[in-house]
């Protein structure tokens, strides 16, 4: 279901930054947090504003992990799968997370509440295993912590 998309906010954001291509990624990042993802309608508007082909705008949008072109769940879990977390027990925590939500990495729960994604290393390896839910960071995770943490978002 495509929500009705109000372009006013998008225009405002673009106007604030101007149409120097150097600003494109910053604009896309802000639009992404405004709309939760980057809808096609918004990208078309960006293409017009920057006077760049839509393919180029989409190319940039789909390249970076902090930009998404499809709507995701209400809460986005970014799980760190990198080696420093792996050697201190990340696989077991991920298993618990996937079991608890009944989905795998890259998927969204049926009720659209949660999406699990991976994150590249965010450099807090000292407290691994680590995951981020929306903007909250959780470290020193153990498999048994998962239900309690998720309960905060249900």
């Amino acid at each position: 279901m495509e929500r009705k998309i109000n372009l006013e906010k998008a225009n405002e954001i673009m106007k604030k930054h101007g149409n120097n291509p150097e600003k494109l990624i910053e604009v896309l990042s802000e639009l992404n947090s405004e709309y939760g993802y980057l809808p096609k309608k918004v990208l078309k508007q960006v293409s017009k504003f920057f006077d760049l082909p839509l393919s180029r705008i989409y190319g940039t949008s789909s390249f970076y992990t902090m930009l998404v072109t499809e709507p995701l769940g209400e809460n986005i879990i970014r799980f760190c799968e990198n080696a420093p977390c792996h050697v201190v027990g990340a696989p077991e925590v991920l298993e618990s997370l996937e079991k608890e939500l009944g989905i795998k990495i890259g998927e969204t729960t049926k009720d659209k509440k949660f999406t699990i994604l991976t994150t590249s290393c965010i450099g807090i390896c000292g407290v691994g295993p680590v995951m981020i839910i929306n903007n909250d960071v959780y470290g020193n995770l153990k498999p048994e912590d998962i239900p309690r943490i998720l309960a905060n978002y249900k």
Binding site: P21, E22, G59, T60, F63, M66, L67
Partner: peptide, 26 residues
């Protein structure tokens, strides 16, 4: 200041430059 948007390869200097130019960080 240029804020990245999440791509490991952008640490490579020419990819980083492409990214500042608003392109895919290749």
């Amino acid at each position: 200041i240029h804020k990245g948007a999440g791509a490991y390869v952008c640490g490579e200097e020419t990819a980083l430059i492409e990214s500042i130019e608003g392109k895919r960080g290749e």
